[in-house]
């Protein structure tokens, strides 16, 4: 190493799933390591650490992002959300059910990232075509499913959302 740079740790405060976490970390600490190892939220996975595979997808200020391509120190003040947060508040319930019913996951390693991608996509594209779903899935690599049942699960989730919207009482109107 020509110039060692700083190993000095500083206090970094991040808001993750609405909660504030302060940890002493080096400036080079990757967001994904902060989330996983400093805070202990393990749903965000590491697949490549160069921004290609999407396993580490989180939301930063409401949009999906690769958490392996961000430094925790640079995100002070940002709102970060992970699968744990979106899962706990029920926003993903429809998608999670659709993935379960359609066998949209096998090893489950890419799944958290895929769910976040799908959620962002469906919130912007309520009635997507198969081709649009596939294009949206270009955000994530999956090595188990061949994407077949992921595409199906997302299409089913879109249809079910549509139904719920048309019929907010979920079919059990008095």
């Amino acid at each position: 190493m020509s110039q060692p740079g700083s190993l000095r740790k500083t206090d970094v405060t991040l808001t993750i799933n609405g909660k504030s976490y302060t940890r002493q970390v080096e400036p080079r600490r990757l967001l994904v390591d902060f989330i996983r190892h400093d805070v202990g939220l393990k749903a965000t996975h590491i697949g490549c650490e160069h921004g290609v595979c999407g396993a580490c997808t989180v939301r930063i200020d409401g949009r999906t992002a690769r958490s392996c391509l961000h430094f925790a120190v640079a995100l002070q003040g940002a709102e970060i959300e992970t699968l744990e947060g979106l899962s706990a508040d029920g926003r993903l319930a429809g998608l999670q059910k659709a993935f379960h019913d359609a066998h949209g996951l096998q090893c489950g390693y890419c799944t958290p990232g895929v769910l976040l991608t799908a959620e962002e996509f469906l919130s912007e594209n309520p009635g997507p075509s198969e081709q649009e779903i596939r294009a949206a899935l270009s955000n994530n690599l999956c090595r188990c499913t061949g994407y077949v049942n992921i595409v199906k699960a997302i299409a089913n989730a879109a249809r079910d959302r549509d139904k719920t919207k048309a019929d907010p009482a979920g079919g059990s109107r008095p």
């Binding site: 190493m1 020509s2 110039q3 060692p4 740079g5 400036p27 990757l30 650490e49 160069h50 921004g51 690769r66 392996c68 391509l69 961000h70 430094f71 640079a74 995100l75 003040g77």
Partner: peptide, 24 residues
């Protein structure tokens, strides 16, 4: 945004000694 820079830093192909964030 770091989408081109950080992969190279993670691979240690780039090792800048000072990183100036313009995100603020």
């Amino acid at each position: 945004g770091g989408q081109s820079l950080v992969p190279l830093m993670n691979l240690r192909m780039l090792q800048p000694s000072v990183l100036v964030s313009i995100n603020h």
